[in-house]
Design a protein around this nucleic acid. Structure first.
Length: 711
DNA sequence: AGTAGAGGCGTTTTT
DNA sequence: CGCCTCTACT
């Protein structure tokens, strides 16, 4: 036993699980097929989970306890035992996790079986199902998946038609709709309107919104889960088809499932309930999205015959880190009591560092990284800086840039949020879904075709009264009556161009998809339009290159025809929030910057968890919600348990919030750690630059104050 | 029709 | 501060 073992307090004796197999364990027969699976590399609990036969099984897997390994090895094991890869469904929480899982199954069994296992997020699975079955609900399988900005545009239109002012209501209504869909509530069933004066309007808006989406032949993110469930409920024969297809279902991050996902899963998994759920109630950090950590605790109620296995040995972190993380999470009341332990040794103590302000904090972190990584960048992938909320990112980026430290950012905004890329995607959506009015409205005047607000209003009105898609309307010369002749001609050309591209897509082989799109962009003058909109030729060039990058990437997408290739690509990227390009997401030689949420499932030798102050972690908004603090505590726990060897917790005395300098108190989570587990220190010597920044900010603030309070 | 500037708003986390 | 929308002007 290692020295670290003494620190942990535990109730039961730990099996010595990680040692070499005993003498006498038979080695695989050399004459038999080379056995790809070495279950001896697993600890007994892991191996038991992997070997589990038919029927439900729940794996309570603490942070770093090898849960991905259990899932991937089990997939391999099932295939090894003769289950066909396409009969296995693995559901993950992020696309990244799905990709990683596929890679690891491939390592175990080779590329071919790994490719045929159905792996993806709940949303991706829903989208896949809907492409095949949405006809049952009267949609066209070429439907579009709306992003957030499309949803907003759609709801704005709806509110306008209902004569409800859009400002202020827009967000609220969208959130009501989303929550309702996630709770499987129909508009008619919305909670009693008497208790909320906004409800009747929300109810009507909800109805109209759904109708609008159907007319657009579009679904939103929530529909990707809701609609398949509806189809399954209404059509048992369809459900049966998929139950037979997915004989074995494995669900990762089960603690993050919400009501609709659970219902979806319940439909998908029939007797004998070959479902494995893996998760950790302590890592449930998506309650704001409706996740119910209790789902993991009630797995046994749902499937009474379920076997339950707990994985508590951590293979990731040194004991000093686990002790701190355990100290924090153990304050939560409603949880499965468990305690992670590891054999990786005590490790250096966790450090809590207090800085004067957030500028200093960012710079201190940058300085530490610069100091520890030495002169070359090779080891930078060992470092991660985690934060609670995205605005914290700005200062961190600035500090790293100043020291020429390369970094990558996880989650957050992606290239797909750039205007010119969105324009491109709108064209692509219009190609595959002629009824996508939102896409059409986005590109109808980019490049400019002389369509202004009046023409647009006329066309939209015509579309609304005749119930036809906007594209149909502008294609029809009669419907273009009253539109200026020049504009009408332009629209005619536009229609011809789009239709020609559609025809080519339908005829050409997959490899030609890039050509078709390239030619379309050529014909409409996309590049020239970017140049015209951009003052700097240099910036215009960069934007155009970004567009070309996307076109190139479509070219390398798989598909059996140009049309299908394009469809596949659009679907893929509308399900991805992920980072920009492969280039930017490559961790090699870069520090990782990430929200705590996005860092889940990852590990780094050195982690800086920053902004550990009250009102940020725990976040002020979370304090108002019931269970908010417990969730923030889990978030803190998730952040801490990303660290393998070293963990730094930083907090500040003041920080700039909306241009106002406010006092900060250390997070309560810091106080929850027994002092002997943490080395606390201050670093009160800001560099000249920091002092200058601080002075400037104080000055700016003083000026602002002076303006606001003339006295 | 298209643009510039004022004003108003908001900032938790994400598939 | 920075993003977005609406309004008034060219």
């Amino acid at each position: 036993m290692r020295s670290g073992a003494g620190v942990r307090t535990q109730s039961e004796p730990r099996p010595d699980v990680n040692r070499r197999p005993r003498e006498g364990v038979p080695s695989p027969d050399r004459n038999a097929r080379a056995h790809p699976l070495d279950l001896r590399a697993l600890n007994p609990q892991q191996a038991e989970a992997v070997r589990h036969g038919d029927g439900p099984i729940l794996v309570l897997a603490g942070a770093g306890s090898g849960k991905t390994r259990v899932i991937t090895t089990r997939v391999a094991h099932l295939i090894d035992r003769g289950v066909r890869p396409e009969n296995i469904l693995g559901v993950t929480f992020t696309n990244k996790a799905a990709a990683e899982m596929r890679g690891r199954v491939a390592e175990l069994l080779g590329d071919e079986p790994a490719r045929d296992v159905h792996l993806g997020t709940f949303h991706a699975l829903g989208a896949w199902l809907l492409r095949r079955e949405i006809g049952a609900l009267g949609f066209d399988p070429r439907f579009t998946i709306l992003d957030e900005s499309d949803r907003r545009r759609a709801i704005r239109q709806v509110l306008k038609e209902l004569n409800i002012s859009a400002d202020r209501n827009e967000r609220a209504v969208l959130s009501v709709i989303s929550r309702a869909k996630n709770a499987r509530t129909t508009p008619a069933e919305l909670p009693d309107v008497r208790f909320d004066p906004a409800m009747p309007r929300a109810q009507r808006a909800f109805e109209r919104y759904n109708l609008a989406l159907k007319n657009l032949n579009a679904v939103d993110f929530d529909d990707l889960l809701l609609l398949p469930t509806r189809i399954f409920e209404a059509h048992p024969e369809v459900r049966q088809k998929y139950r037979q297809r997915f004989r074995y279902v494995l669900v990762d991050e089960y603690q993050d499932t919400n009501a609709i996902q659970l219902a979806f899963l319940g439909q998908l998994v029939g007797p004998p309930h070959n479902v494995m759920a893996v998760g950790d109630d302590d890592q449930s950090i998506y309650a704001f999205r409706g996740a119910v950590a209790d789902n993991i605790l009630s797995f046994g109620d749902r499937f009474p015959s379920a076997k339950v296995i707990a994985l508590e040995q951590n293979y990731r972190s040194v004991t000093s880190i686990l002790d701190v993380a355990n100290a924090v999470i153990s304050r939560n009341q409603e949880r499965h009591d468990k305690r992670l332990w590891s054999e990786l040794g005590t490790g250096p103590p966790v450090e809590a560092v207090e800085l004067e302000n957030d500028f200093d904090e960012a710079d201190w972190i940058a300085r530490q990284i610069a100091g520890e990584s030495g002169s070359d960048n090779r080891s930078l992938h060992n470092f991660a800086v985690l934060y609670r909320a995205n605005p914290q990112l700005d200062l961190l980026e600035e500090a790293l840039r100043k020291r020429d430290i390369p970094y990558r950012i996880l989650g957050g905004q992606s290239v797909f949020d750039r205007k010119e890329i969105k324009d491109l995607l709108a064209y692509l959506r219009l190609l595959t879904n002629p009824r996508d009015d939102l896409a059409l409205r986005r590109v109808i005047n980019f490049p400019t075709r002389g369509v202004g607000t009046t023409s647009m209003a006329r066309l939209v009105e015509h579309a609304r009264t005749t119930g036809r898609p906007l594209f149909d309307v502008i294609r029809d010369p009669a419907a273009r009556q009253g539109i200026p002749a020049r504009t009408s001609t332009n629209l005619g050309k536009f229609v011809t161009t789009i239709e020609r591209a559609r025809t080519r897509l339908a005829q050409e082989p997959a490899g030609a998809v890039g050509d078709v799109i390239g030619q379309l962009l050529d014909t409409i003058g996309f590049e020239a339009a970017i140049r015209a909109a951009e003052k700097s030729a240099n910036v215009a060039r960069i934007r155009w290159e970004g567009v070309q990058d996307v076109v190139d990437r479509i070219g390398s997408e798989r598909g059996d025809s140009a049309w299908r290739t394009l469809e596949n690509y659009i679907q893929k990227i509308s399900l991805e929030t992920g980072p920009a390009s492969d280039k930017e997401s490559d961790p090699r030689g870069r520090v990782t910057l990430s929200t705590i949420h996005s860092s889940k499932g990852l590990e780094f030798p050195v982690v800086f968890l920053c902004g550990l102050v009250e009102d940020l972690l725990p976040h002020i908004r979370a304090k108002e919600e019931t269970g908010g603090i417990a969730e923030e505590r889990r978030l803190c726990y998730v952040g801490m348990t990303r660290a393998q060897r070293r963990l730094f917790l930083t907090h500040v005395r003041t920080s700039l919030f909306r241009n106002e300098r406010i006092r900060r108190k250390p997070s309560r989570f810091l106080a929850e750690v027994p002092p002997e587990l943490i080395r606390r220190r201050q670093d009160d010597q800001p560099s000249a630059w920091e002092a200058e920044q601080d002075r400037l900010n104080t000055e700016r603030f003083a000026q602002l104050r002076a303006l606001l309070e003339p006295r």
